[in-house]
Amino acid sequence: MAIWLTLCSTIVVIAYLLGSFPTGYIAVKQLKGIDIREIGSGSTGATNVLRTLGKGPGAFVLVLDSLKGVLAIALVYWLFNFAASENFIPLTVDVKLWQSWLVILAGLAAILGHSKSIFLGFTGGKSVATSLGILLAMSWQVGLATAGVFAVVVAISRIVSLSSIAGAIAVPILMLVLHQPLPYILFGIAGGFYVIFRHRTNIERLLAGTEPKIGEKLVTEPEQTA
């Protein structure tokens, strides 16, 4: 049992480190020679990269940040397949239940890593793209439906933050509607709340009517990401 718990704990740590990989920071640093945390919203996520470098780099960061979430969940599935083949799983372990809970722990670790990167002094992005990757790996139906909600809201409003918040609100509802396991529903609630919390400054600007639309520059001071 000790070996099994060590393996599970290691997967969660690796998931955090995957989430922590500062894709947006590296992209802007390499292409423009500046610290993205000092411009725009101060976030290292794809939206701020879009405002800083344009659509191409923004899309590139979006894809890579999503892949971080996919890989975090894929690691859990790999662990269970490997452990089963090597007889590492204790007989007392309910495999289906453990896998579900480890999936959400790894997912939450990756989300936390993206917004509180150990490589950037525990600063980072809003965890939206990484969350989408996690959802796609966890339940592709929920992931695609969430992406659909985001796409509809952004098409109407042209505001990425509002679309992200709408997607975060939709996740636990979609989990319930699509009859996902209880751990996944709890992940939807916790992850959705965290993403919304990370957008608290955006919410203030939305209420004030100053949140920029796609193509517009953010003229306010960088928000605190620490």
Rank of each mutant, 00 (worst) to 15 (best):
L75E: 06
A147C: 13
V93W: 05
A151Q: 08
I185Q: 12
S115P: 02
K217A: 14
L218Y: 15
L162P: 03
M138R: 02
G58C: 05
N87C: 04
F187D: 01
L120N: 08
I173A: 09
I203N: 07
K29I: 06
L62T: 08
A106W: 00
Q180Y: 04
K29R: 14
I196M: 08
L102G: 05
T210G: 04
S157P: 04
N87M: 14
G143W: 01
G40Q: 01
L53W: 03
T92R: 10
L105W: 07
S161A: 15
I189W: 11
M175Y: 09
S127N: 15
G24Q: 05
A145N: 04
D94R: 11
I111R: 04
K68C: 10
S131K: 03
E211I: 06
L67S: 11
I214H: 03
A2G: 08
A168H: 09
I214L: 15
A151R: 09
G113F: 04
I39P: 05
V76T: 10
W101P: 01
V95M: 10
F82A: 12
G121I: 12
L206F: 13
A84C: 12
V70Q: 00
L120F: 11
A166L: 00
V13P: 02
G107N: 05
S117G: 04
T220N: 07
I173G: 00
V177M: 13
T123P: 00
L102H: 01
K68Q: 07
S41P: 05
S127W: 03
F122E: 05
I73M: 11
I39W: 13
L17F: 14
N202D: 08
F80G: 04
I196F: 10
V171T: 05
S163G: 09
R200H: 15
A2Q: 13
H199T: 10
Y25D: 02
V76P: 08
V63R: 11
F21M: 07
F88P: 03
L120T: 04
I156Y: 12
K68T: 07
G58I: 01
F21I: 09
I89L: 10
N48Y: 08
N87S: 15
T225K: 15
L5D: 15
V219F: 01
G121V: 00
E86M: 14
V70D: 02
